[in-house]
């Protein structure tokens, strides 16, 4: 996931940089005002149309999931500077719902897989419970890192859980 995001981003950044380099090096003037206006409207229309498509598709498939009724509930509490997770093992290939909150300040529950890649996150906030729904399709040890700055030992807030095949 992250590497495709990086590649697409870099490609678009390079495209814009390329346009600037082209414009700066170009010896020919940009032509008539009528011509620019046409290109400008085409560009804006293109951006709008692309935006609508990207928004619809990505919101349709990328938004936060809601749990079904038989999801396994796991309660997570963050505090300065610890994570309390009420289960040590998490079932494989089953929907789980993390209910995340905090005892003091804002924290962020970032879930890292065994390759140390971030696969999901949600905020833990005092007075509120955020519900994060995930399905783990690989067994192994997962780490929980704090992803919301919470004070002087923020970087020490690491815990872990095990994803295991259900008996």
């Amino acid at each position: 996931m992250q590497s495709s995001i990086l590649i697409i981003t870099l490609a678009l950044m390079a495209l814009v940089a390329g346009v600037f380099l082209f414009v700066v090096m170009s010896k020919n003037s940009a032509g008539t005002a009528a011509k620019h206006n046409k290109i400008r409207y085409q560009l804006i229309s293109l951006l709008v149309i692309a935006g609508v498509i990207i928004s619809v598709v990505s919101l349709r498939y990328g938004s936060h999931a809601l749990a079904s009724s038989d999801a396994v509930v796991i309660n997570v509490v963050g505090g300065q500077w610890w994570w309390e997770i009420d289960r040590e093992t998490v079932p494989l290939n089953k929907e789980v719902e993390f209910r995340i909150t905090s005892e003091d300040v804002n924290h962020g529950m970032g879930i890292y897989n065994s390759d140390f890649q971030l696969i999901g996150q949600a905020q833990g906030m005092p007075g509120y419970t955020n519900k994060l729904v995930m399905v783990f399709d690989k067994p192994g040890t997962y780490q929980v890192l704090c992803l919301e700055f919470c004070g002087v030992a923020h970087h020490d807030m690491i815990n872990e859980f095990e994803v295991v095949a259900a008996e």
């Binding site: 992250q2 697409i8 981003t9 950044m13 990505s58 498939y61 938004s63 936060h64 971030l118 696969i119």
Partner: peptide, 28 residues
């Protein structure tokens, strides 16, 4: 000219991070 280029180029990773699907794994 660099400043407008930098502003425009920088808006790309920002907009991409503004997508919920991406933000799940890039936020913070």
């Amino acid at each position: 000219v660099l400043s407008v280029a930098g502003w425009t180029i920088g808006s790309i990773p920002a907009v991409i991070d503004g997508m919920i699907a991406v933000n799940k794994v890039m936020h913070n």
